[in-house]
Every structure is written in C-alpha cells, then in structure tokens.
C-alpha cells in the first residue's frame, strides 16, 4: 500500500465498521424468558452456597499423638498413652466417634524382629466415643518398625455435624537400644572367638610343619 493511500473500508464481525469515514455500532437487545432467569438465579445461589463456608458439612481433621512421642517409644514397654483428636480448624468437634485400626509393620526377613509371626498383621481395632472431640487409650507397641494407624472419625449416633473422615498415620517405633547393644556384644564375642581360634590353629599348624 503506497503512502497516502487510505486503507480499505471493511465491516468486521463485531458489527463495527472501520475506515469508512464514520463508525457504526449495532446493538442487540438482551431478552431472557422466565426459564432462563430461573436458571440464572439458581446458578448464582449454588455459587454462593459453594463459596460461603459453614453452609456445607464441616471439614474436620484428625490428629494423632502419643505420650511419650514415637521417637521415645520402646517396643514392649508401655503402655503408651495414645490420643486421637477430631478437630475443625483447630477446635475439638463434639459428639464424635473414632475407630482406630493398627497394623503391625513388615520387617525384612533377614533382620527379623523377635516376633515375626505378628509382622504385617492387624494388631487391633478400637471404637471409642469422643464426646469432647478427644479419645485417649493405652497401647502397647510390640515390635520395632513402621506401624499403619488408620483412624476414622464419624459423628455420634443421630448427629450429622460432619461427614465421616478417614486418615492414615505412619507410626515409627525404633528398636530397644539395649537389644542393639546386646547384638553388638554378641558379634564382638563371635569375632573374638573366631580370631582366637584362627590364631591357635594357625600357630599349631606352623609347629607341626616344623617352622616355629
């Protein structure tokens, strides 16, 4: 297009004409029937309900802890005080029922625990009332390893305060340090016995050979 030439006059899909010396705007009248209005209002109400908290079920959470904490728990030493809390934004939820299922850890067969027959098997199941949103029970953790603790919280009979929620916790119990030390002592004894035996046998072998 040479300098000074006017661009072509055209009419776009928006209804606005360009470069035709004047601008023309077409307007479309917005009309909605009763059905469309009803759908629009229902949609807006649903959007408001979804965005406003508290109008739906409370989103509860489950907290699990022990006294002493897991790092200080020794297998077969207890009982350990275990606490389950059902909370909503940090506040206890009243009239709850908690169900606790514990599965024993699975340990490598090469480094078995002292009770391999319980490894990987269900340890127990408890159903506890938590009228104040908290349930406490005593528990004995039998072997070392990573336990699976599955806790389900649901409202008490007749209550619909919240939807049932299930959460899985991993509970790591370390081995008794005394047992670890005993194993080290046993290994030292065996290695010492082996070295002593090797020394005695080696020396006697040299004597028999007449080189001593």
């Amino acid at each position: 297009m040479a300098a000074g030439d006017k661009p072509p006059c055209y009419s776009g899909s928006t209804g606005i004409s360009h470069n035709c010396g004047k601008t023309q705007t077409r307007t479309r009248k917005l009309t909605m029937n009763k059905r469309q209005w009803r759908h629009l209002i229902l949609g807006l109400v649903a959007l408001m309900l979804a965005l406003v908290p508290g109008t739906a079920f409370a989103a509860v959470d489950i907290e699990f802890g022990t006294d002493p904490p897991a790092e200080e728990v020794i297998p077969e030493h207890g009982p350990v005080i275990s606490t389950v809390r059902v909370v909503d934004n940090g506040q206890p939820v009243a009239n709850a029922v908690v169900e606790v299922s514990v599965t024993n850890p699975t340990v490598s067969p090469l480094f078995s625990t002292d009770m391999p027959m319980v490894e990987g098997k269900p340890l127990g199941r408890l159903v506890l009332a938590a009228p104040e949103g908290e349930a406490t029970f005593n528990w004995l953790w039998p072997i070392r390893g990573d336990y699976s603790v599955v806790i389900t919280a649901r409202p008490a009979e007749g209550s619909t305060a919240f939807e049932p929620v299930t959460k899985e916790f991993s509970y790591q119990v370390s081995e008794n340090p005394t047992k670890r030390n005993n194993l080290i002592i046993l290994l030292v004894i065996l290695i010492g016995f082996g070295l002593l035996s090797g020394f005695v046998l080696g020396r006697s072998s040299v004597r028999v050979g007449g080189q001593a």
Binding site: S112, M115, M117, L186
Partner: peptide
C-alpha cells in the same frame, strides 16, 4: 536371650 538380640526371631 533370643528376645534380647535384636534380629533373632522367637515367636
């Protein structure tokens, strides 16, 4: 003794 040796199975 078995129960006190960390990796020795008993039960």
């Amino acid at each position: 003794l078995r129960h006190s040796l960390y990796i020795v199975a008993c039960h």
